[in-house]
Simulated scan of single mutants.
Amino acid sequence: MTMQLHKVHGSGNTFYILETTDEKSMDWSQLSIWLCQKENLGGADGLLLVAPSKKGLAKMRVINADGSEASMCGNGLRCVARYICEKNNVSEALIETMKAVLKVQKEAPIYAEIPTYSVEIAPISFELTSLPMSYKNKYEIRNEMIAEFADDITFTAVSVPNPHLIGIVQPDKITNTLHQERLSSMLNGQNDFCPDGVNVSYVYPMDAQTIYVRTYERGVGFTNACGTAMTASALVSSIVGVAQEGTVTVFNPGGFVQCHVKNNKGCFDLKLVGNATFIAELELNYEKENEWLWQSVKNTDEQKAYESLIAYTENKIAAIF
């Protein structure tokens, strides 16, 4: 059986898109583990499975590099949004995810002529049970020091719906990754706080409308970018007052995005806007159970255009750190 795939990325967060009419036709976890190996065409962060939906134009499932399944992925959803909109010749659509049906839309480029899409990020909850997370019988954690984690970082816990722990940090915690790696490894191993693990982001406010975010992603490790983490970081930055409400530009190791934060009397509307870059079109042959063989790989020229955004990002970051 031959399968058609696209290799794509949003903010350097790399995925394979595969469309299926039968979600039970294969062990998607094993396929994702195989696809994402670094020695296999450079690897990827996950598999985006596109399937039929009764609630939207399509359904998206997110299979991480380790075979686990995430409830959402903002960077991946932008890429699926482009795939679905171009296939159906529309500029906006509703796409079903694990916990919500979300609006996606084609947008004007945020840099040069790079294909750009926006995606709604929802649902949002600050209740620790939504992550889940447990800490001293607290209902929520907002802009608080947690002695067991650090003595110089304020943390906020939020699900969007992926679970996130957001820390506002000074530049030394950005230039040196050791503290974040140790904390993230602890919280994503056997621990008393986050039984299912958590995405951990360190955020440095660059100015009133700009932040830098680095994320250790559950099931992945340090990643170029995580869409829900960037959006959650913009939300938290707005709430604690280190960034203004509205449009927040978020720089990350993979580029930059725009996150729109709107406060409706304590209820938040979130939108993530950024690139949806198609790197290659591929054919994969399913040989037998859990065995696959590449048939063809056809690269596009879209990554060349994205490299100019990377150069711009690197110059901006170098001026800060």
Rank of each mutant, 00 (worst) to 15 (best):
A234S: 08
F149H: 12
V257E: 02
E302K: 05
V250F: 02
E217G: 03
S201F: 05
L270H: 04
R218E: 04
A276N: 09
Y212L: 05
E86N: 05
Y83T: 02
S71R: 09
E245R: 08
Q258T: 06
T129W: 09
P205L: 01
Y306M: 01
E314Q: 11
I211R: 00
Q37E: 10
S130M: 12
K304I: 07
Q258G: 07
N275Q: 11
R82N: 08
M186V: 09
G241M: 02
F256W: 09
E314F: 02
L31C: 02
D192N: 12
I95V: 05
H9P: 00
M3T: 06
Y312H: 12
S91P: 05
D27M: 10
M3S: 07
L178V: 15
V250D: 00
N75G: 02
E291Q: 14
E107M: 13
T97M: 06
E96S: 02
S118M: 06
Q30W: 13
G254P: 01
I174N: 06
E92Y: 00
T210Y: 03
Y111K: 07
R214Q: 10
E283L: 13
Q105C: 12
P161F: 07
Y111H: 15
E92K: 01
A108H: 13
G241C: 03
G219Q: 04
D27C: 08
A157Y: 10
K138T: 05
L187C: 10
Y111C: 06
N199D: 11
T156F: 13
I166R: 15
G43Y: 03
Q303I: 14
G56E: 10
K173D: 14
G46M: 07
L94G: 02
V248P: 01
S53L: 07
Q170V: 08
P163E: 10
N188R: 04
T116H: 04
R61A: 09
G10I: 01
Y16M: 01
F222I: 12
Y135R: 08
M133F: 10
K262R: 15
A44D: 01
E19K: 14
L94V: 03
M186W: 15
E23V: 12
L183N: 13
I211V: 10
M72R: 13
Q295Y: 14
I146Y: 04
H179V: 14
G254V: 02
V119Q: 03
A280P: 00
W34L: 08
A112H: 07
A280C: 03
